[in-house]
């Protein structure tokens, strides 16, 4: 295969089946200085993100912003429509009072926060993206089923093909392979 066609390696891949071994392996790859490597798993493996030395997600910050936006939009809307734009006396009740604004304000806070969370989660996860350079790899396809697949992409600043392969083999990855474009 190698040398037959002029193709560039996209990544180096190796498989794991045991979650404990995977965790140790991820730590070693991170310690070796790779910063853009990834592990594909069929379900979230506890502690894997920390083993990979990934920073904590910033999602909750955006959720907070979304929630605050919903809170103020709701209050502003209830106050402006009822007490400014169209003053309507209904049963002598005040035109605006925070008490009757509570339910709608609460609901819109939740609504804005939930929609923001969902949207920002997609953006941070780079979704939707209906293509992956690895999608034809048989092992990679099993990563959503029953296999842990470690991937060191060629784009990693630290990437040297032989080094990466040797590292994966040394840390116990099975079926270490080069994925080509």
């Amino acid at each position: 295969m190698a040398g037959m066609k002029k193709t560039a390696p996209v990544a180096v891949m190796g498989d794991f089946e045991d979650p404990d071994a995977l965790l140790k392996a991820a730590e070693k790859i991170a310690n070796a200085g790779y910063t853009t490597f990834d592990v594909y798993t069929p379900y979230p493996v506890h502690g894997l993100d920390r083993a990979m030395k990934l920073p904590k997600t910033k999602l909750s910050f955006f959720s907070l912003l979304g929630g605050l936006a919903g809170f103020f939009v709701a209050l502003l809307m209830i106050w402006w429509t009822g007490a400014v734009d169209y003053k309507l006396n209904i049963g002598g009740k005040p035109l605006f009072a925070f008490q009757f604004a509570v339910p709608v304000t609460f609901e819109l806070t939740v609504l804005f926060c939930a929609l923001t969370t969902f949207a920002v989660m997609l953006v941070l996860s780079k979704l939707p993206r209906w293509y992956s350079p690895y999608q034809h790899d048989k092992g990679f396809q099993r990563a959503v089923d029953d296999l842990f697949v470690v991937v060191i992409p060629a784009s990693d600043p630290r990437f040297i093909l032989e080094d990466a392969m040797r590292l994966l083999e040394n840390i116990g990855a099975k079926n270490v392979r080069v994925v080509e474009d």
């Binding site: 979230p44 990934l54 997600t57 941070l124 979704l127 209906w130 992956s132 959503v144």
Partner: peptide, 14 residues
């Protein structure tokens, strides 16, 4: 949506 099971995505997802 092209989900791959990437741990980088899982941490946002969780």
């Amino acid at each position: 949506l092209g989900w791959t099971g990437s741990t980088r995505a899982w941490r946002h997802y969780e």
